[in-house]
Design a protein around this nucleic acid. Sequence first.
DNA 1: AGTAATCCCTGGCAGC
DNA 2: TGCTGCCAGGGATTAC
Length: 296
Amino acid sequence: MPELPEVESIRLGLDPRIKNRVIERAELRLAKQLRGMKPAEFAARVAGRTISGTGRRGKYLMILLDGETMVIHLGMTGQVTYWDHTKEDQNEFVVLPHTGLQKAAGQHAPDKHTHLLFHLKGGDRIQYRDIRQFGYVRLFAPGEIEKFKSISRLGLEPLDRAFTFAAFKKAMAGRRGALKAMLLSQSPIAGLGNIYVDEALFRAGLHPRRKAETLKEPQLKALFKAIPAVLRQGLKFGGTTLMDYRDAMGGKGSNQERLKAYGRAGEPCARCGRALKKILVSQRSTVFCPACQRMR
DNA sequence: AGTAATCCCTGGCAGC
DNA sequence: TGCTGCCAGGGATTAC
């Protein structure tokens, strides 16, 4: 699932390729993936616009269209890729062990899951693909995006310069309840999902059900350090590709090989060797080390 | 303020 | 081989 490192990896790949390019036409194939606007209005407002840049807030990807802002949320299986008309659709296949089915990586033609295409001047395209259709696209006129609650409610950007210990402590002040639920809420901190929450809590040595209000200075500090650390590592290795995540060029990330907790239930803890345990917290499967991450 | 349940959706995969 | 049913889960929403 695309979390902050995956969305940022997409943005970094996309930005130099689409900056200053002109959108000739938007092709919406699945209307429900567009929110807050009729398809005809969207098409009219996007056509002919120049892309001035890209942005990101938490897990939200933004494409800036000289004035208007297009917001893309990738949900669980959203992919935004750049399709280069001078390149062949290369299908570098990976065979799945059980079924023998092949999963493509790399640039490929639109298929039944490609729900939105931006045809750029010159023949290239930006392709939005979303298997489970939990993602969506919105378009905001200047000044309108501030009214979009999903974004205005977001907490601190954990990779920003402004993410200092003082700011973190302030954001955490008065928070109650399970740490995992709190970190998934996007509210004190934006951009963490199930993978990086488990990784950050493992790194900080904190139990996912540990109550936020019981954290003392050392635990707060550990969490403050762990969050950017796991996100930076994810970013460095191009994101975590468990199944569907692809970067802007359709490639896979490699951070999945470096995860210490997520998806590793039953495996030995990298720190103490005891078996990692899987529990349910906030309706989310959660993996942690019962020895290293105690409730206290 | 918090928790908890429900819904959206497709595909992988185990079991029969 | 094909069917059934469970699982994955971000976030909106609703109820408590």
